[in-house]
Amino acid sequence: MIVLGVLMACFAWALIIPMSLTTPPSILLAAVFMTGLAIFGATMMLVLWVAVSPSPALGAAWWRTALLLAVSLALWAPTYGWAERGEQPWAWLAGFAIAACALITWQTGIVAAVVLGTAASIGGIVFDTSIAAGVLITLGCGLVVWAMCQAFVWLLRLLWAAQAGREAQAELAIAEERLRVSRDLHDVLGHRLGIIALKAELAADLTRRDPAQAAMESEGIRELANDTLVEVRRAIHGETTADLATQLQAADLVLRSAGIEASIDADQEVLPRIPQALSRLLAAVVREAVTNVLRHSDARHASITVADTEPLIRLIVVNDGVREAARSEVSGGSGLATLSARCTAMGAHLIVDRQADKNRFEVKVECRHDAGRSR
């Protein structure tokens, strides 16, 4: 919207110049002429709106270009006919129309230049004005205005492209995480369900011949099913393979692949001393925090710190790019809420700190060294 506002301020001269260089013969005709210029301005805004769109539709670009050319040609006769002596008001109007069309694509710009340049030549012949001056003003104004405004449109499109690339990187990281979950579930369920199926067949065969042994096999199936359920839950939370050290390495790789400067500060002497259960819990916090950075932030920098401050272990994940619209989404999501409950169950404390004025989002976990052993 900011870029569109700047462009409209520049293109306002397309209305001001014709008004200042024409003299309609009556008040009524002056009102009609002003109405026509207003329609021209509205049509030009439609063209500029397409120019600043992230992915303009080709059909919309062409029909709006055609509409702007039609309105420009409708103003051709009155603007030439009421022009002050020696002035070329329609050539200025046509030049701005060419520039607006060229901001969409070079093809629409060329079409507009050919059509309106030809109209300027015909205007010089019909109304006995300088043909060279009319064509030069039309094409020169179009080229100069296009060159001035193209930088704004180019930077905006570059921003859209960067944002699209960032979202693609985030989606890729999320897809990789989903692939990991599906792989872990396949490893867990494929093996366990095969065993359960074999033991179920054995129990069915033993039902008549050896009921006691069949009952034992059924009990084994129940225990195996319960163990499988536990393993599935661990696989979903990534606890089957990733401890804190492994997850820190993965977080660094994922953040940097998404174009985010990552800072990992973890004492390598501290990580081995963290109990296994607590290490997996902290790894889950890192994974959820990094996922939130990718999905809900415009962060340029993210830092992860693991500190051993007796008697507590602290994990702090900070990013500097929380989106205004996403703050409620992050706070209301189930991921951090679930982790908070898991931390409480382990004797740890999860703290979420959002500082709107600094655009800063922090996730911190504090726990005692023996939290993983005592639960």
Rank of each mutant, 00 (worst) to 15 (best):
I236A: 09
A289G: 12
A302C: 09
A225K: 03
A215P: 04
T291N: 12
L248W: 01
L278V: 05
A214M: 02
T241L: 07
A215N: 07
T240N: 14
L248V: 00
D308P: 02
Q276V: 15
T240M: 13
N226M: 14
A266P: 04
R300D: 14
L294R: 12
A302W: 00
E217G: 01
T291K: 11
A203Q: 07
T207R: 15
R233K: 07
T207C: 10
L278P: 05
V318G: 03
D205N: 08
V286F: 00
E288C: 03
Q247V: 00
D210Q: 11
S297T: 15
G238V: 00
R295L: 15
L315K: 05
L315I: 05
V286M: 03
S263G: 11
D252R: 15
A284C: 03
V293K: 07
S263F: 09
A212D: 14
E201G: 09
A266D: 05
A215Y: 02
L202F: 08
A266V: 05
V285A: 11
P275F: 08
A225T: 13
A302G: 00
V254N: 10
L202S: 11
L282W: 04
A212I: 12
E310N: 09
L294N: 13
A204E: 14
A262W: 03
T246V: 12
T240H: 08
E219H: 14
L312E: 15
A302Y: 00
R280Q: 10
R295A: 15
